[in-house]
């Protein structure tokens, strides 16, 4: 787990589980920024991310007793967060256009390695974030789960409700969608500049 990447706050967790509000406050202060950033990447707007962060912590407070202390706390947090964000997106039916197609049957175009390399080299983090915002909910969610919270293929499959073997396809398609979004941003910028 790469974020927040700190030692497990075992003591604070134990105190919070026993109802210590101060300990809960510590946990909140420690993990709220990372949770907010996760939600910000996964959900379409800042307001959504703010609300979702608060809701996730409300859920966490109730669920804290279910946390298995032998496992990573942050991994558990991200699992709850991913579940909550995906629920929000599913409720809004954002997925319907992008995900109802039979993805397995649509062939992916094989990229030109040198062109892909050039595309990647020329892009900044900010451009990637802008491109992410344009992507379909499932593709974005898959990328966030994998590259932000470092969730395993099994966990991603579980969250998205797909077969484990299909997670690679979802991620690859998400990357293709991201590249398209990056290219269209470039084309737009070039068109506007000319």
């Amino acid at each position: 787990m790469n974020a927040p990447g700190k030692t497990e706050p075992t003591e604070a967790i134990a105190r919070a589980r026993a109802g210590d509000a101060e300990a809960w406050g510590e946990l909140y202060r420690e993990y709220a920024p990372a949770m907010f950033r996760f939600c910000r990447r996964a959900l379409p707007t800042r307001e959504d991310a703010e609300d979702a962060t608060m809701e996730i912590f409300m859920k966490l407070k109730v669920k804290l007793v279910q946390y298995d202390a032998t496992r990573s706390f942050s991994a558990w947090l991200y699992k709850v967060a991913a579940n909550h964000c995906w629920d929000i997106l599913r409720r809004r039916r954002i997925r319907q256009d992008k995900e109802t197609g039979d993805l397995e049957n649509v062939p992916l175009e094989h990229p030109d390695p040198s062109q892909l390399e050039m595309l990647i080299e020329q892009r900044s983090s900010e451009e990637v974030r802008k491109a992410l915002a344009k992507m379909g909910a499932r593709a974005r969610m898959a990328l966030v789960m994998r590259y932000y919270s470092d969730m395993s293929y099994d966990e991603i499959a579980d969250e998205l409700g797909v077969r484990r073997a299909f997670v690679g396809v979802v991620l690859l398609r998400a990357r293709h969608e991201l590249r398209q979004a990056l290219e269209s941003n470039t084309a737009l910028a070039a068109g506007g500049a000319s």
Binding site: A3, P33, R41, L116, I120, E126, Y147, Y148, R175
Partner: peptide, 18 residues
């Protein structure tokens, strides 16, 4: 290129921009 793409994605997501 794929490895770089992975790193770019991770960096873009983890950066504390807000």
């Amino acid at each position: 290129a794929l490895e770089r793409e992975s790193r770019l994605l991770t960096r873009a997501m983890l950066e504390e921009d807000e």
